[in-house]
Computed example of a mutant assay.
Amino acid sequence: MTTNNPYNFLPLQPTGRNENDTANTYAPEDMIKIYEQQFLIQVPEDKLTEFLPALKAFYDIDNHTLDVSAIIFDAIADSAIIYNHKIKVGDYQLLGGLVEEAIEYDEDNTSVDSVEGEEIQAYTLECQRKFFINDIEIAYHFNLFIYGDGYSTLTKKDTVLEKMYWFVRGRFEEDLLDDAEDNDSLASINKQLAELGIREMDLTTIDEMVSYVENSIIDDAMVDELNRLLDDAE
Rank of each mutant, 00 (worst) to 15 (best):
S114Q: 07
I103M: 02
L66Y: 08
D108I: 05
V89H: 06
A77Q: 12
D135H: 15
D60L: 13
D67T: 05
S114T: 02
I81C: 09
I61Y: 06
I82E: 09
I103E: 03
I81W: 01
G96M: 07
V68L: 07
S114M: 04
A80C: 10
H64D: 13
G96F: 02
F132G: 14
R129H: 04
Y92D: 11
D135Q: 11
K130F: 09
S69L: 09
H64T: 13
F131Q: 07
A102Q: 01
G90F: 06
D135W: 10
D135P: 14
E119N: 13
L94S: 08
Q93D: 08
H64W: 05
I61S: 04
N63T: 15
H85N: 15
Y92K: 05
A122N: 01
S111E: 12
Y123T: 00
G97L: 06
Q121L: 00
I120P: 00
Y123S: 00
V68F: 10
V89Y: 03
N109E: 09
Q128E: 12
V112C: 03
K88C: 04
A70E: 13
T65I: 04
A80R: 14
L66S: 10
G90L: 06
S79E: 14
L125R: 12
Q93W: 14
N109A: 04
V112L: 12
I71D: 12
F131P: 15
D135G: 11
N109G: 01
E119L: 09
A102E: 00
D91R: 14
D62Y: 07
I61H: 04
I133Q: 07
D135I: 07
G96L: 06
L98I: 00
E101F: 00
I71M: 15
A75F: 09
K130I: 07
F132R: 12
D135R: 11
E119I: 11
D74C: 12
F132M: 13
A80Q: 14
V112E: 11
E100T: 03
E118M: 04
A75P: 01
E118F: 01
A102P: 01
I82Y: 08
A75W: 08
K86P: 10
Y83V: 07
D135M: 14
D108F: 12
C127Y: 06
V115Y: 10
S114N: 03
G90D: 03
C127A: 09
V68P: 08
Q128M: 09
D60S: 12
Q93S: 11
G96R: 04
D91L: 12
Y92V: 11
D113Y: 11
Y123A: 02
I81Q: 09
G90A: 04
I71N: 11
L94V: 15
E107F: 01
I72M: 07
V68K: 06
A75N: 10
K130H: 09
V68E: 07
I133D: 13
V112Q: 11
G117V: 03
A70I: 15
T110D: 06
L125G: 15
I103T: 01
F73V: 10
A80E: 15
L98C: 01
E104F: 00
Q121T: 09
E107C: 07
E107N: 14
A80H: 13
I120D: 02
K88Y: 04
E119K: 08
I71C: 14
D78L: 15
A70H: 08
L66G: 07
